[in-house]
Structures are given as C-alpha cells and as structure tokens.
C-alpha cells in the first residue's frame, strides 16, 4: 500500500520584523524539518505542547501557509507544485477542521450559508440537493435543522465546534486534518464526535491527521502517534508502543501529566520543570535538554537524529543512540 500523504523535510519559518523599516531580525522556526507518512485509512495523532507548531504544520499541509522548504505528496502527486484549478480540485479531498471555531466561521453568514458554500464552490447546483446534504450532515453532528438560519454567535462554543466539523465533512474528503476538534466539547459530546469520526472513517475509508493535546483522546482514536517538541518530531510510534513504552523523556513527562478522575483535589503534580523554550531562539543541541531529567554531556551540542529503536518506533534522543 502507498501512503496517501508523504511529508518530506517540511519547514515553515515566520520572519520576525522589527522597527519602522520592518527589518528582518530573525525567524520563528514553527515547523523545522519534519518528515512522515500517513497511510490510507489510518489515523495519525499529533501531540505536543502549546506553541510547538502543530497548527502551523496542519496549515502548511493544506497550503494555507506556503512551506519555507520541503515537499508534500498527496497520493503520490507533488502537492506543492499545484496551482489554480488543479489546486482547488485537489484541496476538496483534503479538509481541515480549525482549532478556533469562533475565528474560522464567518459571523455574517448563517449556518446554512456556511455549510452550503463549499457545495456551491464545488458545483452542487441544485438548492434542494444542497439542502438535503446539509440536513444530513447536521443530523450526523447532532445539531437540529431548526438552527440552520442562525448565525455563529447564537451558538455555544461546542455547538460552533460541531458546525466547523460539519463544514469539513460536506465534501466527502479523503484526508481530514483535525486541529483540536473535540477539545471545546463536553465529554458526552466528545464521545459522540469521536465515535462519529470513527464511523465515518470506517464507512469512507477516511484518513485523519488528528492534532490534539489530550492524550486520552489520542489514545482512543489514533493508530500511530507523533510527538512534537519545538518544531520537530521527537518520537513517532504505534499507539500501544508509545503508551506502554514511551522512550523520549518528553513523551514520558506528557503521559505523566494527564489529569485523571478520582485523584481528588490536591496540589497539582509538578508540571514539567524549567522554562518552556521559545521557537524564536531554541536551545542548542537537543531542544529539550534544559528541561530534561535525563540529560547528559553532549545533549546541548548536537541535535539527535530521529532513529528507529524498535520496529516502527522512532525516537530522537541520544539515550538510545546505538540501540537497534
């Protein structure tokens, strides 16, 4: 089987400009040399601390941001070389659910206009056909069709989130990049949406790139998981391996920090110590070394390569140098 999505050495750097002349004084290395593949029908999870570059990666993959370097292949085709009509056609197959539903829904459009627009753009002419499709999707995401003529601000946060999920699903995409699609939802709806995503996947052989900060959700849904830290992938493994045998000290800390029901009110467990470093001037060597409990000599010198330590389990940490 061939991967549906291949990402090769992708970078996205944002220039930092200063002063009246907006001189470039540096850059934010939001995504810094990332490579991975996603197989058809698979769900790849992407986790990592806030600001590590998850949304930027997602936005770069659908070319909402042009990559600073690297290649993206969608079904074997060079996605970066497409433009105009070709790009629009291919984009229909790749949809993104955005992190901030409030900012991504046009406040002047009613829900029926928001959901109808992609259909219109992609040539579903008949209004009654559009209406039928819209009502179908609304039911699937658990919204009442009596809501269709309301505007985004008339909805609660979770309702808005479901509208943006509905919008992404309108065009039967093949690959869905879901950026924190359930984090604004309460648990019962979260469960419904996760089940829904799974059902849709089975039915249409959908592929997901699932961005989340919630490891319990990722564990529930994803086949493989990539852990990002400061613009780079530090660990990539099948789900069971990642949770039963995390390798990178950062991954271990993440799993440790999950709040669990029934532990009672208490002093929060010590969160990862140290300052969260900035992608503006990342630490030398391994970016994680200033916070790493296991650091040793040399960690501050060279960035470790992402290497396979057991089948399909990749980690970028010199603790495992020479394993495999």
């Amino acid at each position: 089987m061939k991967p549906i999505l291949e990402v090769r050495n992708i970078k996205k750097h944002f220039p930092i400009k200063k002063g009246l002349l907006l001189k470039e004084v540096g850059s934010v290395k939001a995504v810094d040399d990332i490579s991975f593949e996603v197989m058809p029908g698979e769900t790849l999870g992407l986790v990592g601390e806030s600001g590590c570059g998850k949304s930027t990666l997602g936005r770069t993959l659908i070319r909402l941001y042009e990559p600073s370097a690297g290649q993206i292949y969608f079904k074997g085709r060079d996605f970066c070389s497409l433009s105009g009509d070709q790009l629009r056609k291919e984009r229909k197959n790749i949809q993104m659910i955005f992190q901030d539903p409030f900012a991504s829904l046009d406040p002047r459009m009613t829900i029926s206009q928001i959901l109808g627009e992609p259909l219109k753009v992609h040539g579903v002419e008949s209004p009654s056909e559009r209406k039928k499709k819209i009502e179908e999707i609304m039911t699937i995401v658990g919204l009442k069709s009596s809501y269709l003529n309301r505007y985004p601000h008339e909805f609660s946060g979770g309702q808005r989130q479901r509208i943006s999920i509905a919008r992404a699903m309108m065009l039967n995409p093949e690959l869905v990049i879901a950026d924190e699609p359930v984090s604004a939802l309460d648990v019962s709806i979260q469960a419904q949406i996760l089940n829904l995503l799974k059902d849709l996947q089975k039915e249409f052989n959908l592929t997901y790139l699932f961005i989340s900060h919630d490891l319990s959700v990722v564990e529930h849904l994803c086949d493989r998981i990539a852990v990002m830290y400061l613009g780079k992938i530090v660990e990539l493994a099948p789900r069971d391996k990642l949770f039963s045998n995390p390798k990178h000290p950062y991954t271990k800390a993440l799993i440790e920090a999950i709040p669990r029901v029934g532990q009672g009110k208490k002093k929060m467990r010590q969160s990862l110590g140290g300052e969260v470093p900035s992608p503006i001037n990342p630490p030398s060597g391994c970016h994680f070394h200033p916070r790493c409990p296991k650091k040793f000599e040399g960690c501050d010198k060279i960035y470790p390569v992402l290497q396979e330590v057991s089948q399909q389990h990749y980690v970028a940490c010199d603790l495992y140098k020479g394993e495999q």
Binding site: E49, Q99, P259, M268
Partner: peptide, 20 residues
C-alpha cells in the same frame, strides 16, 4: 470559562497551579 481547553496537559497543570 473553559480556560484550559486549548492547552496541553503540562501547561494546563501550570495554569491551574497559577490560579490555585
């Protein structure tokens, strides 16, 4: 109101600690 929904667990912990 849902102050930590967009935050990963470690930063969530930090914010909750700050509030506490």
């Amino acid at each position: 109101d849902e102050p930590t929904t967009a935050l990963d667990v470690t930063i969530q912990a930090q914010i909750l600690e700050l509030i506490q």
